[in-house]
Design a binder for these strands. Structure first.
Length: 269
DNA sequence: ACCCTCCTGTCA
DNA sequence: TGACAGGAGGGT
């Protein structure tokens, strides 16, 4: 479930429920996770929760040590889910890690087990290389500098976390549709007007997706499953064969860098 | 640019 | 039975 809007939602919900809570026990149910590192979190208190790139980072305070900090970073990869709950859900088949708190618990579920929980002693090692497109630093000029003279097709370019952080396969297609730019255009070939449209579309799609709590997000709230609703606003992703909502041409699917891309050849140039 | 791997599941 | 799935890292 992991693109920027989903991780942003995860971090906000977790912050609302888990801030100030103390970790009483850690249960690691997947041998691929670092049980030794995670066991050391027992006794720590959750100070803040934030999103950094596509990772959800819990800042922890160790007991009786005001300034010594520690960070738990969670990368959800393809199918990870992370949320607070006051009781275990009915279906725990994909539960991989459980943090018992002094009130409730933090659950990490992951069907495909690609996600990773890592423990860090400083924030610097977690700082993403790429620019976060939701920040004020993301300007058309900054985008221009990043695109530079790249000959890479713009769709796979948008997935590069060393340029912009947070975009994934769903939002890359949606952003290019909104910007009316074909996904196979060379990143460095966009003219000033196209760069402006790309910048604007990136901010707009991410804003709407965050407001909708994402496309693939789900969690438990008061015992009920809640999920993001951006799926209802998708214009092209997963819609090949359907009529384009803008021009009526059929939406197409192609493959770039081994990933599906969805676009409309009628109104994207 | 291409290929593959890590995993487990759903769908045509 | 095979194709494909929110990500990313590796190899050639």
């Amino acid at each position: 479930m992991p693109e920027l809007p989903e991780v942003e939602t995860v971090a906000r919900r977790l912050a609302a429920h888990a801030t100030g809570r103390r970790i009483l026990a850690v249960h690691v149910l997947d041998e691929k996770q670092d049980g030794v590192a995670l066991a050391r979190l027992v006794g720590n208190r959750i100070a803040t929760v934030r999103r950094m790139g596509k990772q959800c980072v819990l800042e922890l305070r160790r007991p009786r040590r005001r300034h010594v900090e520690r960070y738990l970073a969670v990368h959800l990869r393809m199918t990870g889910h992370l949320y607070w709950a006051d009781a275990l859900p009915d279906d725990v088949r994909h539960l991989r890690v459980r943090l018992d708190l002094d009130r409730g618990m933090v659950l990490f579920e992951d069907l495909r087990r690609f996600g990773r929980l890592t423990v860090h002693e400083d924030l610097a090692s977690l700082e993403p290389v790429g620019l976060d497109p939701t920040t004020a630093d993301f300007t058309t000029a900054a985008l221009h500098r990043l695109l530079a003279d790249s000959r890479q097709p713009i769709k796979p370019w948008l997935l590069r976390q060393d340029r912009l952080v947070g975009l994934g396969n769903i939002y890359a297609s949606e952003i290019l549709f909104a910007a009316r730019i074909l996904p196979d255009r060379a990143a460095g070939s966009l003219d000033a007007g196209e760069r402006r449209r790309l910048h604007r579309a990136t901010r707009q799609i991410l804003r709407r997706a965050i407001d909708a709590a994402g496309t693939t997000y789900y969690a438990l709230e008061a015992g009920r499953r809640v999920r993001g609703t951006f799926r209802e606003q998708l214009a092209v992703y997963g819609q090949d064969g359907d009529a384009c909502r803008r021009c009526g041409e059929p939406v197409r699917r192609s493959v770039q860098a081994q990933r599906s891309t969805y676009y409309c050849a009628g109104c994207q140039e």
